[in-house]
């Protein structure tokens, strides 16, 4: 089992959506959650405080999820932060782009609490396996 206290940043421009994801995270035991309403605010938050995990939406104004992901991977301080991308449909080209940009995994809306837990565990497991 992983640290239930790890700090997660939920990024989505639709506040209802952030609330839903926060609730699902709470359901699977993660309560240390902060939120941001688009990529650029997320990046600011990531730079000002330490986060252990990022769950971001794909389609957002100003700075979409994919740009956020690229920015994270380019930042020497942040580049190790695991990122889970939330997409609305498993459009192949999206997934391909995201993987090329270094996403840790993706999940398709709407998802269940179990599915989200599955993905988070998978990411953390994989990270543990690969020494950094």
């Amino acid at each position: 089992m992983y640290d239930q206290n790890m700090k997660i940043l939920v990024v989505d421009d639709f506040s209802t959506m952030r609330r839903i994801i926060k609730n699902i995270l709470k359901e699977i035991g993660y309560t240390n959650v902060d939120e941001a309403d688009d990529g650029s605010t997320a990046l600011e938050k990531l730079k000002s405080a330490k986060f252990d995990f990022v769950v971001t939406d794909w389609n957002m104004p100003n700075m979409p999820g994919i740009e956020l992901l690229k920015a994270i991977r380019q930042d020497p301080e942040l580049k190790e932060t695991p990122v889970l991308m939330v997409t609305a449909e498993a459009a192949k080209e999206n997934v391909v782009t995201a993987v090329a940009a270094g996403v840790n995994n993706y999940i398709v809306k709407p998802f269940t609490a179990a599915a989200l837990k599955e993905r988070i565990d998978l990411i953390l497991e994989k990270l543990k396996a690969t020494p950094q």
């Binding site: 192949k92 391909v96 993706y106 269940t112 179990a114 599915a115 599955e118």
Partner: peptide, 21 residues
């Protein structure tokens, strides 16, 4: 190459339990 990895991700995810899609 990325597509290939995407597929693996998908497979991994499916193998490990209930998946949404």
């Amino acid at each position: 190459a990325a597509t290939a990895e995407a597929r693996t991700l998908e497979v991994e995810a499916k193998a490990t339990g209930p998946v949404d899609e």
